[in-house]
Amino acid sequence: MNLLDNLYKTLIYDNRYLFFLEGIKNTIIIAFFAGIIGVIIGIIVALIKNYHEKTNKLKTLNFLASCYVNIIRGTPTILQLMIIYYVIFASVEINIVVVGILAFGINSGAYVSEIIRAGINSIDKGQIEAGSSLGLNYPKIMRYIIMPQAIKNILPALGNEFITLVKETSVGAYIGIIELTKASDIVASRTYEYFFPLIIAAIIYLIITLSLSKLIKIMERKLNNVNS
């Protein structure tokens, strides 16, 4: 009966499951929107860098893009989060979850850009040359020739990045976001018992990340069927 007692204490008593629901909600919201922001930033940064490599144009933008990627990859996520919250948004009234979305999105964008760049570079350069020789410009070559082929190489790595992102949202606790890890911590501090709250949180993370990898696998298979 010890197990049931503990579950009762962790989830039911005093409506403690509400903390977990709040945590799940914030974790998913932050990961989802940060993922979207990350992909958008990642595509833009990857294209700027690739276009610069190919044509030697866009020097300033390429420099800024390189700085961005280096700074994000070279400093801890926690620090970036705190800088954005305590420094950049110090004097602004802003929802803390939105800060989380922005911070994790900006962070993820740097990694996504490198994933996309690697995907683009994995395509034989003869493909770009063939596209150019037919009078197609850079955007058209990317859109109709390179990206449809690169996506197969990009998707698995992108899946990993999304899974990392879900787990990284736990860092949000540092600025007071009640995400899943923080929620389990709050519950534990009330039950004076860490085992059950933390294990429950771990199981929920696993469910989210495993579903995510399953989803990516399905997308990969679909793509492989289309572009066999």
Binding site: G126, E129, N227
Partner: peptide
């Protein structure tokens, strides 16, 4: 081109 460079997709 020597390697044809057709678009495989």
């Amino acid at each position: 081109f020597q390697q044809f460079n057709l678009f495989p997709h």
